[in-house]
């Protein structure tokens, strides 16, 4: 896929001779370099977790959000360019709001995911725009139960049991595959996510973890995991990792 230097990779409005839109791939690259974001669907809800690098010690805690509610029952974790992420979240909020205005009930997860996919896809069609540098994990809990979706910069949308995007995605996906997601509660889920994020994190730099969920325990509302629970999960995850290290 080398389009570098050919001139066919400078605009979203340009196909390369072998039929690629390189700008879309490059936008995906921005996501692949970003902090890891993990999502898993447990039996009673969905857990999202994001790894946030701390760029300054003078930052307030919880600055640089990576998880955002889009409606009461739906929320997202974004990997990639943070500003683009907020823009996608704003669109999600608008879609959810508009759906509720027209149909009088909460937007189903698959509709929201599809609409976001279409929205992000539009930015791959015109030379005047660039694709979003964002992959968004979408967690919803509506009539259809808890669901997890992934929307990519190209506009492609998937539904997942569990997935990861960003720098440590490969390692994280391997770990997720080992989990018994169908038997796991969200309480166990946050610990699993915390553990995975610590596992794939590149040791040298500090990071802050952001955990959010939508589950029975949160009243099917998308919210950040209460600080105390998040701290407990993180401590348990660290302990588990240390124990594993000892075994090795």
């Amino acid at each position: 896929m080398s389009g570098i230097g050919t001139g066919y990779d400078l605009s979203t409005g340009t196909f390369s001779p072998d039929g690629r839109v390189f700008q879309t791939d490059y936008a995906q690259k921005a996501v692949d370099n970003s902090g890891t974001v993990v999502g898993i669907r447990c039996k009673d809800g969905v857990v999202l977790g994001a790894e946030k690098l701390i760029i300054s010690k003078m930052l307030e805690q919880h600055s640089n959000r990576r998880t955002f509610p889009a409606d009461r029952h739906a929320g997202m974790a974004v990997a990639g360019v943070a500003a683009d992420g907020r823009s996608v979240v704003s669109r999600a909020m608008a879609e959810a709001n508009q759906y509720k205005s027209i149909y009088g009930e909460a937007i189903p997860g698959h509709v929201l995911a599809e609409r976001l996919g279409s929205f992000m896809h539009l930015f791959n069609l015109y030379g005047g725009y660039r694709p979003y540098g964002v992959s968004a994990l979408l967690a919803t809990y509506g009539k259809e139960g808890p669901q997890l979706y992934l929307v990519e910069p190209s506009g492609v949308t998937y539904r997942y049991f569990g997935t990861a995007v960003g720098k440590g995605r490969q390692g994280a996906k391997n770990e997720i595959e080992k989990l018994k997601l169908g038997e796991m509660s969200c309480r166990e889920g946050i610990q699993a996510v915390a553990k995975i994020l610590h596992q794939v994190h590149d040791e040298e730099k500090g990071f802050e973890m952001e955990l959010a969920w939508v589950c029975e325990e949160s009243g099917r509302h998308f919210q950040r995991v209460p600080q105390q629970l998040a701290d407990e999960a993180e401590a348990a995850a660290k302990a588990a990792l240390e124990a594993e290290d000892m075994d090795d």
Partner: peptide
């Protein structure tokens, strides 16, 4: 419905 939108916004701003 207007007020609901506003409080939904408050929820989303979190």
């Amino acid at each position: 419905r207007l007020l609901e939108e506003l409080s939904d916004d408050d929820f989303c701003m979190d």
